[in-house]
């Protein structure tokens, strides 16, 4: 082989290794449904995901440079707001809802408790613009990113263009969020027949499937639909959920069914965070359901649970904690 051809081969290998490193393969966990997100319109790459992660943790997105996505979505609480019933944003202003936990978003077809957002790419616009959250505008965000030394370089690497656009900003944030997959809890290991539930967990799992499983459907632990979970209206908020968006009385008090994965860490619970403990949630479903025209079909017949049975269901719910997800440095803040 001549020197020249060796050099050509080496260059080829170098380019190949670079493109392989940059490629990101989205792995659908075994026996999970097909994701809803259309990856063909936003092809994943390591560089774009890394840019998205950087943006997710950067307060530059907020008007006063103090609030980042992670302020209300921190990894160790399954990307929700630790210990806050209603999330607070810019200048400690209190919002109207409990920030949802972020995971397995590629399977979701709408976002927010009321489904106001129709696509993961557009989700980040909402907190960015909300006067109680980041109180900014995407146009201003793009302009401030452009003025930094770092970001034009990162956009050049990720998108091949150092001119920052709203489209690329939103797509990069989407890419990072798409990688937040939680599928490695004890429950998952049991399903893969690697380990077994304890007797109590097993009993809890059976009760769960009977009483909770149709809305909190496996394997995502949500049916991704909107349901009225029988909570009385909170008089200080008067939040009618989905109806605020559709203006249809049929949607009064309907909220999106949240996932129960990592629920041990994502307290407080419900759309307004009114319950601090899982036992309070159990008590609500067993004896606190408020009848109304739009009450979920599944809740119309009273759920009867003994206190032991409630404890068993909670024991099962704790098997949905995924430490690998909660502490994976890939999802965390890095400089």
């Amino acid at each position: 082989m001549s020197n020249k051809s060796i050099i050509i081969v080496l260059i080829g290998l170098f380019i190949a290794s670079f493109s392989i490193k940059n490629e990101y393969i989205f792995i659908v966990p075994k026996n999970w449904p097909k994701p809803h997100y259309d990856f063909t319109k936003n092809i994943l790459s390591e560089n774009k995901i890394e840019l998205g992660r950087k943006l997710f943790y950067d307060p530059i997105l907020s008007r006063d440079n103090k609030i980042s996505c992670a302020s209300c979505h921190s990894q160790f609480t399954a990307f929700t707001h630790v210990d806050h019933a209603l999330s607070h944003g810019i200048e400690d202003k209190i919002g109207t809802r409990n920030s949802p936990a972020l995971m397995n978003l590629a399977w979701h077809k709408s976002f927010m408790w009321d489904g106001a957002i129709n696509h993961l790419d557009m989700q980040a616009l909402a907190p960015m613009s909300n006067p109680l959250e980041m109180d900014n505008k995407i146009g201003r965000v793009v302009a401030s990113l452009q003025q930094t030394i770092l970001y034009p370089k990162l956009y050049q690497i990720a998108f091949g263009d150092s001119i920052i656009t709203g489209e690329h900003t939103l797509k990069a944030i989407s890419q990072f969020m798409l990688t937040l997959i939680s599928a490695n809890s004890k429950y998952d290991s049991v399903m893969r027949k690697q380990i077994e539930f304890t007797v109590q967990e097993k009993n809890g799992f059976e009760l769960f499937q009977k009483h909770c499983g149709s809305c909190h459907k496996q394997p995502l632990f949500t049916n991704l639909e909107f349901e009225n979970d029988g909570l009385p209206v909170e008089k200080t908020l008067n939040d009618y959920g989905r109806m605020n968006i559709t203006k249809d009385a049929k949607d009064s008090l309907l909220f999106k069914v949240p996932t129960l994965r990592n629920i041990e860490f994502s307290y407080p619970y419900m759309h307004d965070g009114r319950f601090k403990k899982l036992s309070e949630v159990m008590n609500h479903y067993a004896s606190g359901i408020q009848q109304s025209k739009t009450l979920s079909k599944q809740l119309q017949k009273k759920i009867v649970l003994t206190s032991n049975e409630k404890a068993d269901i909670i024991a099962f719910l704790l098997t949905l904690s995924d430490k690998e997800f909660l502490f994976n440095p890939k999802y965390g803040f890095r400089n």
């Binding site: 259309d38 319109k41 936003n42 106001a116 696509h119 993961l120 790419d121 557009m122 616009l125 909402a126 960015m128 613009s129 909300n130 505008k137 995407i138 146009g139 793009v142 656009t165 709203g166 489209e167 690329h168 939103l170 797509k171 989407s174």
Partner: peptide
């Protein structure tokens, strides 16, 4: 269909955020 560029870029101020 998600985030778009050009005249459809949300920075143009013609996209609802809430």
């Amino acid at each position: 269909s998600g985030a778009m560029g050009g005249d459809l870029d949300p920075t143009k101020g013609m996209y609802w955020t809430w």
